[in-house]
């Protein structure tokens, strides 16, 4: 029984926390993937959509 317990403990010794370097690197990858889309800006269809709704409501200003 003791040995089983010890063995269980041993398989459990995997580091629970990622090193800061790994986390930083994963974070960079995530952001560069996300920013790749963000950097595409606002596609025309959305500009047109907002302007159409805006024009339908009140004409520019006032």
């Amino acid at each position: 029984m003791e040995t089983a317990a010890t063995r269980n403990k041993k398989t459990d010794t995997k580091p629970a926390k990622l090193s800061r370097e790994v986390q930083a690197r994963l974070g960079q990858q995530l952001r560069s993937m996300y920013d790749d889309v963000v950097n595409q800006g606002v596609p025309d269809r959305f500009n047109e959509l907002i302007n159409r709704i805006n024009g339908g409501g009140n004409k520019d200003g006032q």
């Binding site: 996300y34 920013d35 889309v37 963000v38 950097n39 595409q40 800006g41 606002v42 596609p43 959305f46 500009n47 907002i50 709704i53 805006n54 409501g57 009140n58």
Partner: peptide, 19 residues
Amino acid sequence: MEESVRKAVLGAVPSLRAF
């Protein structure tokens, strides 16, 4: 729509797309 609202909505579009 107020101009500030229009700007805020448009400004959020790129990030909304990524999400």
